[in-house]
Structure formats: C-alpha cells, structure tokens
C-alpha cells in the first residue's frame, strides 16, 4: 500500500482543521441567550412550580370546555359573518388608500421628492402600531361598533401594503415610464397604463395575503369592542362559560380556515 506522508506537522494540522474560533462565537451567543432566557423568566416571576400549577389549572379548564356549546351557534354565526365583513371593508379601504398614497411615496413617481420620505415614515408607523391598538384609539374617537374595527384594519393595512406597493412601483422598468411620458401621457395616465399593469400581480397577491391577515385580526377586534366575534371570547371567559368559549374558538377556526382556502384558491387563479 502506498503511504502518503502527512505534509504538515501535528500542530499545523490541528490548527488547519480546528473550528475553535467559530465554535467560540456560537458558544458565546448560546450562553448569552440562555442567560437572557432565565433572566426574563425570573423578571416575569415564572418558575417551575407556577408552570406546573398553571398546566394543571389549564387542563382543568380544557376539561370543562367539553362538550362545546353548540346551542350558541345561531348567535355566533352572524357575528362571524360580521367579522368577515369588517375584514373585507378594512382590506378594501387599505388597498385603495395604499395604492393612492404609494403613487406619492414611490421615488420615481412622486411629484414632490420630500413627500415620499414622509409617507414612508407614515407607513412604518401605521404598520408598527398593532391593529388592536388602532382599534382602541378609534373606539375612543368614534365610539364602539364595527366602524373603529374597519378603520383600524384599514390603517394597519395601509402601513404594510403602502410599503410593498411603493417599493414595487420603484422597481418597475424605467423605460416603461419614459416611453409613456414621451407620448405626452399625463401623470395619471402613466400610472394607470404603465405602472399598474406591470405591478398588478404583486398588488393582487399582497392584497390577498393582507386579507388573510385581516381575517385573523377581525376575529379578535371585538375583545376591545370593535365589532365581530371577538367580544364573545371575553364575554364567555368572564362568565366562566367554557363550553361557549370553546364554541367561539371553533367558529373562529372554521372562519379562518374557510377564508384561507378561498384566498389560496384565488392566489392560484391569479398566478
């Protein structure tokens, strides 16, 4: 058998195949993460005894949930429908405003350069403040009901859709706009004949995605009083009516699942 001599000495060989430096990096991260985990747990007063106690009360509660109270269905059904309607109006409102605002936010389309930056800041803010907080604010301003829910979903949607729409407008082919401009088309004509057709697949798929998200939000908007089925969650839990609570959750599940199937189908058609 032919022998190949190791061309390096032992020390050089060890240095060559050592991963110690990489491993040290990951080890430090791991130690830090573990430390922060236990620190967080202690700051929140979560300890093993409480976890064990918590799980036993939780399993009691789950036992008390069965069987679900199907008698509630006739009352819950219209509320689920209302949630879907809130999501539809909130999404449509969000789409209309985000497309309009994106015209002014996209760097290549905006008539006033500074406006783009301000609008993008506005998008970031409306996106970062959660829908439920928006609902809380709108309730204070216009009172309980479906209107604050619709407005909350609309404003929160503007944040997300405005960002992706304006970015997709910025990414379109420069030549398309120049070509239309050279024909003497007006700003609106350029937008609707040039920009929209090029970005329509992006607009549609993100709008559908946002509708999915809004359905989830609209199912819980009611916990702060902004309409739909969410309030029933709070009501059932306050009255300790756990079979009804389970029924509410089942209705939400069916609602979310049904809408997800629909948007999934629509997405395939769009493609």
């Amino acid at each position: 058998m032919k022998k190949v001599n190791n061309p390096l000495n032992e020390k050089e060989f060890k240095a060559l195949i050592s991963k110690r430096k990489d491993n040290l990096f990951y080890l430090i991260i791991l130690i830090f993460m573990t430390f922060f985990l236990f620190f967080s747990l202690s700051q929140m007063n979560i300890n093993p005894a409480r976890v064990i106690r918590g799980f036993s009360t939780l399993s009691d509660l789950i036992k008390n949930m069965f069987p679900p109270d199907f008698g509630q269905l006739s009352r819950l059904w219209p509320l689920a429908i209302e949630s879907i309607q809130i999501a539809i109006l909130g999404t449509v409102l969000g789409i209309i405003f985000s497309i309009t605002l994106s015209m002014f936010a996209a760097k290549n389309l905006t008539p006033i350069p500074g406006l783009g930056v301000i609008l993008k800041g506005f998008f970031a803010f409306t996106r970062a403040v959660p829908a439920l907080v928006w609902a809380l604010l709108f309730i204070t301003a216009v009172g309980l009901g479906t209107l604050p829910g619709i407005l909350a979903l609309g404003v929160n949607s503007i944040g997300m859709l405005g960002k992706v729409f304006s970015e997709s407008f910025e990414n379109i082919n420069k030549a398309t706009i120049e070509g239309l401009n050279s024909t003497g088309a007006s700003r609106m004509q350029v937008f609707f004949q040039g920009v929209v057709p090029e970005t329509i697949p992006i607009i549609l798929s993100w709008s559908l995605f946002r509708f999915d998200i809004n359905i989830r939000y609209s199912s819980i908007l009611g916990v702060v009083g902004a309409g739909g089925i969410g309030w029933e969650l709070v009501r059932a839990s306050r009255m300790r009516d756990y079979p009804a609570l389970l029924m509410v959750i089942l209705v939400i599940l069916v609602m979310v699942y049904a809408v997800e199937q629909f948007t999934g189908y629509a997405r395939r058609v769009v493609r």
């Binding site: 009360t57 939780l58 989830r216 969650l233 609570l245």
Partner: peptide
C-alpha cells in the same frame, strides 16, 4: 389558526392576569 389574543383570553382565565 387560533389568534394569539384568543390564546391569551383562555390562558388568562386559566392562570390569571399577567
């Protein structure tokens, strides 16, 4: 499919506020 807030409602009922 169950939103986090809905989970929170159930868990608050089970283990209390906080």
């Amino acid at each position: 499919a169950v939103p986090a807030v809905a989970w929170a409602v159930i868990l608050v009922a089970a283990v209390g506020l906080g």
